[in-house]
Amino acid sequence: MTVLITGARGKVGRAVTSRLHGTGVPVRAAGAHPAELTVPAGVEIAELVLDRPETFPAALDGVRQVFLYPQPAGIGAFTEAARAAGVEHVVLLSSSSVLAPGAETDPLAAHSLRVEQALAASGLPCTFLRADAFASNAFGWARPIGQGLPVQLPYPDAHLAPVHPEDIADIAAEALTGTALRGRAVTLTGGQSLTFREQLAVLSEVLDRGITVETVTHAEAEQQMSRFMPAPMAGSLLALWAAACAGPAPIAETTRTLLGRPERTFRQWAAENAAAFAAR
């Protein structure tokens, strides 16, 4: 009754792999470059590329559950192969952006939404974990903080409820080993609404050094962000942050509500990852 973990190089995928393996669940970690995967001893590895159906049979052999990263390319063929292989349940790491108006055409939301729709159409029993902003998005500030430069933000007072990736992994592991989450779509957040400015203040306290916030214009931010991502995606993120200035971010499901244990905080994430922001 093997569980297939796709995107096993990612932070959440690695954590889910470790959790399941640690409790004796047979796990197969998969990725486009299996030789580059780092997995615990005893975990199988497999090649899986969603737009290369020839990689499906070996990856899915004996698999009954799948932890799936959202990749629209080839998802229809993958769901067909999963059904044929006897897969009984898919846990998708989706995004809360699929709930926003206009998600079908939004560059951020459409990616996950197409996968959700394909899974729903497949008839496979599914659990959708619609994660909100990851606490680890703060890694984007590591370079300026490490170099003692201002962190430039177009909307420093945008409110988010950042969720710790380890909380997502806990909930995913529960979805794969229990029954309470099967067939559900849950939106995952952290337990506290924090603006970008407040997140940086937490980092400043954890690092015990000042961090300057510099407000830039929407256009300046779009130009900067378009160096690292497609322009439509940058525009979508900026629109999201602009709207988030309206007030505190809603708190949805957390490990507290789903698993009965306190959610990890952004401060905890900052302390665990302080080395990434070290002076350089």
Rank of each mutant, 00 (worst) to 15 (best):
W269T: 00
G123R: 10
D170Y: 04
S236D: 09
P250R: 09
E88M: 01
D51T: 01
A185P: 09
C245S: 11
L203Q: 01
G183L: 14
L188P: 01
A35C: 10
Q223W: 10
E222K: 10
A58L: 03
E104D: 07
H89C: 06
D208M: 09
Q224H: 13
R267Q: 11
S122M: 10
A82R: 00
G22N: 14
A8F: 02
E104N: 04
V91L: 03
S94N: 06
L237G: 02
L258S: 04
P40C: 11
E47A: 14
S236Q: 06
R197C: 11
L259G: 01
N273F: 01
D51M: 03
E205H: 13
A173P: 02
F228L: 09
G140S: 06
A100Q: 14
P144G: 07
D132L: 08
L203K: 01
G31M: 07
A135D: 00
F56C: 07
S96F: 07
V91N: 00
G178K: 11
A46Q: 10
V206H: 12
R280F: 12
T6E: 02
I251K: 03
T179L: 13
T187D: 11
A252N: 06
I211W: 03
W269Q: 00
G42Y: 13
A274P: 06
A35N: 14
G7P: 00
S122I: 06
P154C: 12
L99D: 13
M233E: 07
Q268D: 11
P26H: 05
A138S: 14
E116T: 05
G178N: 11
V90E: 04
V151E: 05
V63M: 14
G183E: 13
A172L: 12
G140H: 09
S193C: 02
G123D: 05
A15K: 00
A84L: 06
S112W: 10
G76C: 05
E54A: 14
L207F: 04
G247S: 04
R114L: 15
W141T: 06
L194H: 00
R184H: 12
A244H: 15
G102P: 11
P144L: 05
E47W: 10
V25R: 07
A46P: 09
A231F: 08
T187K: 15
T6A: 04
L207Y: 08
R182P: 09
G140M: 07
A110Y: 05
A161E: 03
L153M: 15
A158L: 09
E80F: 04
A161N: 05
M225I: 01
E220R: 13
P53L: 12
F56A: 04
V90I: 14
V12I: 15
L4Y: 04
P107E: 15
A239Y: 01
W141Y: 13
A161P: 05
A185D: 11
M233L: 15
T105M: 09
G74C: 01
R209G: 07
Y155M: 12
R209L: 04
A219M: 09
P165R: 07
D170Q: 14
T265P: 00
G210C: 07
R184C: 10
W241P: 03
V202N: 03
E104H: 08
A231S: 15
L93F: 01
L99E: 13
V49M: 08
A242H: 13
P70M: 01
T189N: 09
A158E: 06
D170P: 03
T217A: 14
L203I: 02
A109M: 08
L48T: 08
A231W: 07
T179I: 12
